[in-house]
C-alpha cells in the first residue's frame, strides 16, 4: 500500500439551488446537502458512511462518482484531481468507480437478459474481444457472485431481490473498478438474504482486494463489514473512527444517541441497556439548518458556544475525529462519561 490514499476528498460541498418564486426567481436559496466533508479511503479497506435520511451520505457518494455537480472542494483518485474532469475525460473514471444500488428492482433494465446486463460494462469499456471471451467472462462473474450459468439467458423479473442484488454486484465487478460505492446495498432485502449479500461482499473484497465506500443507515450492518466508519449529520461529518473505537467508545453525542436507539436482538442484553430517549425531535430541514453546531437543537449537552459557533472535525493521531466543542482529544483514554459530565 502506497502512502497516497486511493481516494481523497477535501472539503467537499454539494449545494442544490431551490426554485424561487415567479417574480423573484433567485429567492429560492439552496440546500447544503453536503457542506465541507473531508475523508480518505485506502486501497482494500471499507469505509462506512452512516447517518439518517437527509444527512448527505448518498449525495457524498454520488459526488465522489461525479454523478452530481460539485459546488466546492476537491476529489482525488490516486492523487489525480478528478473534481473538474468533464465529458470524454470522465470516461476512464467511470470504469474505475462503480456503484451498487439500493433498489435491486429499479437498477436493472427489465428488457435486458442477465448476460447483457452483466456484460454491458465489458462492451462499453472494451474489456474483452470476441463473443466467446465475452460470454466466458460473464459466466465467470456470475460464478463469482453465486449465480448459476444457466441463469444468464433470463430476465430480471425472474429473480428474487437477493439474486438481483447479486446481478448488480456482478455488473459492478465487470468493469474491474478501483472503488465500489455501495449505496444501501442490503437495506431492501430480508434479514436472511441480507446476511448472504454482506458475506458475499466481504468474500469478494478478500478475494479481489476491493475497496468499498459503504453508504448505509443501518449501523448494525455497517459493524459487520466496515473497517472505519464516518457518521454524518445534516451535511457534516460529526465523527469518524475505526469501527471498534466508534462502536465501543463513541464520543459525539449524536453517535452515542444513534447507537443507543438501535435495539439489539437479545432480550437479556436489551433489558440491561438503557434506552436513551434523550435525542428529541427529528432532523431539521437542510434548507434552513440551525446556526452553530447542526446538532445543537437536539443535543442535551448543548452550550451557548454550540448555538453560535460550528465545531470543526478535530483529528487525533489514531484517526479518531470528533466534531464537537465538548470533545477534548487528549482525554481519549476516558470513556464517554466525560461528555456527560461537561453538561
Amino acid at each position: 500500500m502506497s502512502d497516497t490514499p486511493l481516494l481523497e476528498v477535501r472539503n467537499l460541498k454539494v449545494h442544490f439551488k431551490l426554485p424561487g418564486t415567479l417574480l423573484r426567481p433567485k429567492s429560492g436559496g439552496s440546500v447544503k446537502a453536503v457542506d465541507g466533508v473531508s475523508f480518505h479511503l485506502n486501497r482494500g479497506e471499507t469505509l462506512g458512511l452512516v447517518g439518517e435520511s437527509g444527512c448527505g451520505k448518498s449525495t457524498t457518494g454520488m459526488a465522489v462518482l461525479r454523478m452530481t455537480p460539485v459546488s466546492g472542494g476537491e476529489i482525488h483518485l490516486e492523487g489525480e484531481d478528478i473534481t473538474h474532469l468533464n465529458g470524454r475525460a470522465l470516461r476512464p473514471l467511470r470504469r474505475r468507480m462503480q456503484m451498487i444500488y439500493q433498489d435491486p428492482f429499479g437498477a436493472l433494465d427489465p428488457r435486458m437478459r442477465v448476460l447483457d446486463i452483466i456484460g454491458e460494462p465489458l462492451k462499453v469499456h472494451k474489456l474483452v474481444t470476441g463473443r466467446k471471451a465475452y460470454r466466458q467472462e460473464v459466466l465467470r462473474l456470475m460464478d463469482l457472485v453465486g449465480l448459476l450459468p444457466d441463469m444468464c439467458e433470463r430476465y430480471p423479473h425472474e429473480f428474487s431481490g437477493g439474486q438481483r442484488q447479486r446481478i448488480g454486484i456482478a455488473r459492478a465487478l465487470a468493469a474491474q473498478p478501483d472503488v465500489i460505492i455501495c449505496d444501501e446495498p442490503v437495506s431492501a432485502l430480508d434479514v436472511s438474504i441480507q446476511a448472504q449479500i454482506i458475506n458475499l461482499l466481504k468474500d469478494l473484497q478478500e478475494e479481489l482486494g476491493l475497496t468499498y465506500l459503504f453508504v448505509a443507515h443501518d449501523l448494525a450492518v455497517v459493524r459487520h463489514i466496515c473497517d472505519r466508519v464516518m457518521v454524518m449529520y445534516l451535511g457534516h461529518v460529526v465523527e469518524v473512527a475505526d469501527s471498534e473505537t466508534l462502536y465501543t467508545n463513541p464520543q459525539h453525542p449524536y453517535t452515542q444517541a444513534l447507537l443507543s436507539a438501535i435495539p439489539i436482538p437479545d432480550p437479556r442484553a436489551e433489558s440491561r441497556r438503557e434506552v436513551d430517549p434523550s435525542i428529541e425531535g427529528e432532523v431539521p430541514s437542510p434548507v434552513n439548518p440551525p446556526s452553530g453546531c447542526p446538532f445543537h437543537p437536539r443535543c442535551k449537552h448543548a452550550t451557548d458556544v454550540c448555538k453560535q459557533v460550528a465545531p470543526t472535525l478535530q483529528d487525533t493521531e489514531d484517526g479518531h475525529g470528533v466534531s464537537c466543542h465538548l470533545y477534548e482529544p487528549q482525554s481519549e483514554a476516558e470513556p464517554s462519561t466525560r461528555v456527560a459530565s461537561m453538561a
Partner: peptide, 9 residues
C-alpha cells in the same frame, strides 16, 4: 441478524 454488539467484523 447483524448485531451492534457483535465482535468486530
Amino acid at each position: 441478524m447483524p448485531r451492534l454488539d457483535a465482535s468486530e467484523k
